[in-house]
Design a protein around this nucleic acid. Structure first.
Lengths: 193, 193
DNA sequence: ATACTCATGTAAGCTGTTACATGATTCT
DNA sequence: AGAATCATGTAACAGCTTACATGAGTAT
C-alpha cells in the first residue's frame, strides 16, 4: 500500500478521534484546532477522503439531508491499523516553518533604528492575532480528549512565549541595550521571565 | 512589476546584508541561518536569481575560477528599493507551520498510556535535534549584523521552550497528573519555569 | 588516485492554495 | 425575501523538493 500523505493521517486521526464525520465537518474542525500546526483546505480534503475510501481505510455512508448530498465517513479496522502504525512510527516527522515576519527581523540591519523596532512590533502583532484565534477555539474539556486540550495549551504557551520575546527585544532596542548579551549571559536565550 | 515571491525577498535580503554572493554561497548561508524559519533549495535559488536579474533587482557578474563558471550577484538600487518596501510593508506576512510530531500528540488519545508518552518524547527529540543544529550555526557576532544574532537567539529560545514544555508534559503524564490544570491555573500555558 | 567541495542548472512530480461552480437548507 | 450556512467538488496554478546531470578545482 502506497505511503499515506500527511493530510491522509490528519483525516484518519480526526475521524477516529471525533467520530464519524462529513468532509465539511472535518474542514471546520481543522479550522478550529489543527490549523495552527497542520492546515488543510477543502481542495485537499475531499479528494483525499475519496482516496482513503478506495484504499479501504475509510467507509462512506450516503446520508443526504433532504435532497442535499451528504457523505459521512468512518474509520475501518484497516484505517485504525494504519493510524496506529503512523502514530508509533519513529521516522523523522516533518517539521516546517515559514515565518516571513521573522525573516524581516533577520534582515532588519538594513533599516534605520525606528523601522527596526517596527518590524519586531509587526511580528508581535501577528502572534497576538494568532493567539487570539487559538484562545477563541477553546476546546470542550473531556477526559477522552486530553490531548486535544494539551495541544491547545501548547498553542497558547508557545505563541505567548514569542510575544514575550518580541516585547523583550522591543524594550532592549528602544533602550539601545542591544547586542542583547552576546558574551555568554542568557538574558535573552532563556525564555523572558 | 509583478509581486515578488518570499524566496525572492530572501535572496535580495541575503545579498544585501551579506554582500555580493554566488548562488552556491547563498545556498550555504540559508542552510546555516534562515533554514530554520525560511528554507530554500537550489532548485529554487538558481532560477529565482535569474528572474531577479532580468527584473533588474540584481546584477550578475561572471567571475569564473579557472574554467569553472561562477556568477556573483549584487543588489541594484532598484533591488534595494524593493527590499525596503517589503520590509516596511504591513500586509499580513505568511506564517505557516507544519508540525507532524504535534499532530501525533493531538491524536494521542487513540493510544495506550505508555505510547502516549512515547509520542511526546519523540516530539522532544526532534526539537532537541533542531536546537543542536541551531547551536552549531553560531553566528559571528558583528555590530552590523545584530539581527542575525537576535534571530539566532530566537531559535535557541523558542526550541528550548518547546523542549521544556515536552518535559513538563512527559512528567505530568508519567505521574498521572494530567488534565494539566484545566480550571484556569497557568501551570502549563505559561512557559515552564 | 580519490574523494570532497565548489558551482550551476534542469525536469518530474508532489502538495497545497485560490477561485470557481453548484445547489440545498436553515435562519432572520 | 435574502443571507448565512451546509455540502461537495473541480481546475488552474504556485511553490517547493528530489533527483538527476555535469563538470572543475582542491585537499588527502
Amino acid at each position: 500500500m502506497a505511503e499515506l500523505s500527511g493530510t491522509a493521517h490528519l483525516l484518519l486521526g480526526m475521524i477516529r478521534v471525533k467520530g464519524r464525520r462529513t468532509g465539511y465537518e472535518i474542514k471546520r474542525l481543522v479550522e478550529l484546532s489543527t490549523r495552527f500546526f497542520w492546515a488543510a483546505s477543502p481542495g485537499q480534503i475531499y479528494p483525499e477522503l475519496e482516496r482513503l475510501e478506495s484504499a479501504g481505510l475509510l467507509t462512506r455512508s450516503e446520508e443526504p439531508h433532504g435532497r442535499r448530498a451528504r457523505n459521512v465517513y468512518s474509520v475501518t479496522d484497516q484505517g485504525e491499523h494504519a493510524l496506529h502504525e503512523w502514530l508509533a512510527e519513529s521516522s523523522a516527522p516533518t517539521f516546517e516553518l515559514r515565518n516571513e515576519a521573522l525573516l524581516k527581523v533577520f534582515f532588519a540591519d538594513a533599516l534605520a533604528a525606528e523601522q527596526q523596532i517596527e518590524v519586531v512590533r509587526a511580528m508581535r502583532a501577528q502572534h497576538e492575532a494568532i493567539l487570539d484565534g487559538i484562545r477563541k477555539a477553546t476546546p470542550a474539556y473531556r477526559p477522552d480528549r486530553k490531548f486535544g486540550y494539551i495541544t491547545w495549551l501548547y498553542g497558547l504557551g508557545m505563541h505567548g512565549w514569542v510575544i514575550d520575546w518580541c516585547k523583550h527585544v522591543e524594550r532592549d532596542l528602544a533602550e539601545g541595550r542591544v547586542p542583547l548579551a552576546p558574551e555568554g549571559s542568557d538574558s535573552v536565550a532563556a525564555p523572558p521571565r
